[in-house]
Amino acid sequence: MSNAVSPVAIPLTVVGGFLGAGKTSLVTHWLQQAQGQRIAVLVNDFGELNIDAELLSARNSDTIALSNGCVCCQIGGDLSQALLQVLNNPAPFDAIVIEASGVSDPWPIAQIALADKRLSLHGVLVVVDAQAVRQHACDPLLQDSLMRQLRSADLLVVNKTDLCSPVEQQDCITWLHQTLGPVPYVNSQHGQLALTLLQSDWMPEPLSDGLSGHVCTPHCTHEHASEHHHATDHGALFTSDCRRPEAVFHTNWLREQLKQTPTWVMRIKGWVRTHEHGWSEVQFAGRHASVRRARHAPTQARVLTISQRSVQSAQALASWLDTVFEECEVEGVK
């Protein structure tokens, strides 16, 4: 039987992406640069995993424990079983990451986070090989699997940009946006991506220089002002918007609205009041929205939206959020 519900749900992130796109480098990077966070990573197999020897603390056939408190578990035949092992660990983890297999659709996996109160779905990242993705999209054997993956992404991690010319890189992003719409993306090299993307309290600063998805590494070519300072030439990639809607919503109306969430929105999370459930939790992750009864009452309504920062989206985001959370209130149709 399940354990007592811990007060804070553990954020669960699913990392998808094709064979060779760099998923394993990405999760290895997080495991090794955990900065005091206890991260549990579930992978299909240990085959390609390369953990620095000095970080290894214990290893058996299905678990690798790191000296920094992180673990990497092998899914083997059954994801439920692997996840239960992690959830039933006496010391709770700060974040759980599931690496999906190279050909699987991450969304069915991500839903497992909606199936346990101890978890909260944090997002679906899909790693893209900047050079190879368009070639894979032309392969008749792989095309449909690739598109299923890409369409599940909250955030595309355009990886291996170090192997591309700037023109190739831009062409890749143009192709992705033409194919999928303006889905949020970050560029990365060697799968080096900010750990903050896994954390539930992450919030880019609104309308000022926020956090870039990039992490400075020895591979960077720009000048580093200081070790962990982000050089301004990367710009801020994401922006946030926080609303405090006072209205009481109809759940179905809100669900319908959130089905229309613009493509450039990466994540929505918050609490509003609904006629049906009272305090309700609103979430948009894995490109799916949900509105459900809140587990505890917040002090006030609050909806945080994170989206890709761009000149076009800043205004569009504000006006879309107005439509959902502000304007209709006047007309009393919520």
């Binding site: 039987m1 399940s2 439920s80 839903q111 497992i112």
Partner: peptide
């Protein structure tokens, strides 16, 4: 599928 079955399998 696995996510829905997980609801039961964990018990």
């Amino acid at each position: 599928e696995p996510a829905a079955m997980f609801l039961v399998l964990r018990h």
